[in-house]
C-alpha cells in the first residue's frame, strides 16, 4: 500500500511543491479499518513542507455513516479557518486523476494531542490555565461559521433515540444507563436553532502547543448541525479528563472559563445546566459506544484483546452518570 500512496503523491509533488519537488519521509501514522493517516514532506524550491494525507480505504456510504466525506471535511476545515478557528489548513483535495481515491492533504501542525500529557506534562504548565477559555472562544468561532452543504442536523431527543435503539438492540440491561436515557428524555432542554458543530471537540482531538495553547482543532469527521451546548458539554465528559476529574473542562480547566471564553468571542450566554445536560448525554453516548465495541468482540467481528476490555469501561460512564444525577442533573 505504501508504494501505491508514494506513486500517487509523486505525481502530485509539482502541484504541492512546485516544479521538481520531491516527496520525502512518507510514513503511515495510524489507521482504522476505513481511514488512513499518512505523514510526509514535500521538498522543492520553496523549501520543505510537512504535510498530512487523510485517505479513505474502504467504500463510503454517506447515508449510513455518521461521519462526513473527506470532501465535506475539507470544506469544514476551510469554513472554520475562514472564521479564524485554528485548523491544519487544507492544501489539496484529491481529484479522481490523482489516484488517491477519497483523500485530502493538509499542513502538519506540530504540538501534542495525547490528552494525558496535556493535562499532566510540565511542558504545558504555562498554557494550561488558559486552555478552557481558549476552547470556549474557538467553539464560538466554529459555531458562527457558515456550514457546508450536506451536514445532518441532530437535536438531543434524536441523539438519545439513536443511542437508545443501539442500546436496546445490544440486549444489555444496565439500570444506570436505563435511568439516564429516561431522565434525559424527560428533561431535554427546549430546542434552539442549530449551528455548525465540530461534533468531537475534546481533549485528544486538539493539537496543543506548549507556547500558544490550542494550535489546531483536528478530526472534523463527526461534524453536524445542532445545539451549541453539545460541543461545550462533550469536552467536559469525565472520560476525556485523563485522571484530572477535578478540572471539568478536558482535565485542564473550569466550566466558568469555557463559558466566559465562549461569550467573549461572540457566542451567546449558555447556562451551565445546559452544558451539564449535554455532558451527561455525552457520558451516556460513550457508555453505549463501549458496549458496542464489546459487542463487536462478542459476536466475532473483532478478535483483538482491546475490544472486550473497552467493555469494562462502561462502568466509568455509569459512575459519572449516577454522580451527575446525585448532583441534581
Amino acid at each position: 500500500m505504501q508504494g501505491e500512496v508514494f506513486e500517487a503523491l509523486k505525481g502530485l509533488a509539482p502541484t504541492l511543491g512546485g516544479e521538481g519537488a520531491q516527496i520525502a519521509d512518507l510514513q503511515r501514522l495510524s489507521g482504522g479499518a476505513s481511514m488512513e493517516t499518512w505523514a510526509f514532506a514535500v521538498v522543492g524550491g520553496r523549501g520543505r513542507e510537512e504535510l498530512i494525507l487523510r485517505r479513505r480505504s474502504a467504500p463510503f456510504d454517506p447515508e449510513a455513516a455518521r461521519s462526513v466525506s473527506l470532501e465535506v471535511e475539507a470544506a469544514l476545515i476551510t469554513a472554520a479557518s475562514a472564521v479564524g478557528a485554528p485548523v491544519a489548513p487544507l492544501v489539496h483535495l484529491a481529484r479522481p486523476q490523482d489516484g488517491l481515491g477519497e483523500a485530502h492533504i493538509t499542513r502538519r501542525i506540530s504540538g501534542e494531542t495525547l490528552g494525558r500529557k496535556i493535562v499532566s506534562d510540565p511542558r504545558f504548565e504555562a498554557v494550561r490555565p488558559g486552555l478552557a477559555r481558549q476552547c470556549g472562544a474557538i467553539l464560538a468561532q466554529i459555531h458562527s461559521a457558515t456550514p457546508p452543504a450536506g451536514l445532518k442536523s441532530v437535536d438531543a431527543l434524536e441523539e438519545l433515540a439513536r443511542y437508545e435503539e443501539v442500546y436496546r438492540n445490544s440486549g444489555a440491561e444496565r439500570p444506570i444507563l436505563e435511568l439516564a436515557f429516561q431522565h434525559l428524555k424527560k428533561h431535554a432542554p427546549p430546542p434552539r436553532p442549530a449551528v455548525l458543530l465540530h461534533g468531537d471537540f475534546r481533549n485528544g482531538n486538539l493539537m496543543v502547543d506548549p507556547e500558544q495553547g490550542v494550535a489546531a482543532v483536528l478530526d472534523w469527521e463527526l461534524s453536524h448541525l445542532g445545539d451549541p451546548a453539545e460541543d461545550l458539554g462533550w469536552i467536559c465528559v469525565n472520560s476525556w479528563r485523563f485522571g484530572r476529574s477535578d478540572r471539568p473542562v478536558g482535565g485542564f480547566g473550569e466550566y466558568r472559563d469555557l463559558l466566559d471564553g465562549y461569550v467573549a468571542a461572540g457566542g451567546e450566554e449558555i447556562p451551565l445546566s445546559r452544558v451539564l445536560y449535554w455532558q451527561a448525554l455525552g457520558s451516556l453516548k460513550w457508555g453505549v459506544m463501549c458496549l458496542m465495541m464489546y459487542a463487536s468482540y462478542a459476536n466475532g467481528t473483532e478478535v483483538s484483546v482491546e475490544r472486550p476490555m473497552i467493555g469494562r469501561r462502561v462502568s466509568e460512564t455509569e459512575i459519572d452518570l449516577v454522580t451527575l444525577l446525585e448532583n441534581g442533573l
Binding site: 476529574s245 469494562r312 466509568e316 455509569e318 441534581g328
Partner: peptide
C-alpha cells in the same frame, strides 16, 4: 464494580 474494572478511575466529583 469500578473497583474491579478500573480502581484508578477518578470519577466525576460529587457536589
Amino acid at each position: 464494580q469500578i473497583a474491579i474494572d478500573q480502581p484508578n478511575y477518578a470519577p466525576e466529583p460529587g457536589r
